[in-house]
Design a protein around this nucleic acid. Structure first.
Lengths: 105, 105
DNA sequence: TTATTATATGAAATTGTTTTCATATATAAA
DNA sequence: TTTATATATGAAAACAATTTCATATAATAA
């Protein structure tokens, strides 16, 4: 496999996906569609912050949205859902090891 | 699922896994065991930098190593390998979208 | 027991990401 | 046609991660 051609895509994947709030957004959208204000309530984060995160996830095609009045209804892409499923399982399984890991310390 | 209990583990997972050089290390070790100096040659990164990254991956149990003289021979854990396989496939598939994604811009 | 090779460590400097803030836009209701 | 609601945007401030640098350790060979 040609990893050198994946440089930017890999970085971007992890930048987009590898963020706690963005991961929580993806997790919430696994079960059901939600609009931004519903996500905000669930996640208890700033509106403007959520908006930045949603934009990022949309740009990378992890999410799509449709408009409904003044709301935007967000949903997760099937492939992103699969990935979130796999990663969630892994994190659950290795939770105790991960918690021992002090990054670069 | 109880995502609140996954907070630290999720952060740590992405901190450890979601880094271009650490991902490259994991990818190289998918096929074969390698010692640090071999990894260094392949990846063309600083010794000290590689050492920090290896420590991080070891702490999280993505990697293990055995000693062979003055060398350390690193190998990937089976579950980490599965995850790297899945993520690599995804990145390859979505490369073009990912490249459009300007994080938080 | 000194020198050499392979690798690790910790702190400071650098770089990158996230958060905050002030403001903008888009839609609908009054 | 003003007001309210839902959401987006861009720049600066705050924070976190990576890289560099100087040095340490561990194993072997001379």
């Amino acid at each position: 496999m040609d990893y050198d051609n994946m440089v930017n895509a890999t970085d971007l994947f992890f930048d987009a996906f590898g963020n706690y709030n963005r991961f929580r957004i993806l997790n919430l959208l696994r079960d059901k569609e939600l609009c931004a204000s519903e996500l905000q309530k669930e996640l208890n984060i700033e509106q403007t912050n959520l908006s930045h995160d949603l934009k990022c996830l949309i740009n990378c095609q992890f999410l799509t949205f449709r408009k409904d009045g003044k709301k935007r209804i967000y949903s997760i892409e099937p492939d992103a859902k699969k990935l979130v499923d796999g990663v969630s399982k892994y994190i659950k399984k290795y939770e105790s090891y991960l918690k021992k890991c002090g990054i670069l310390n």
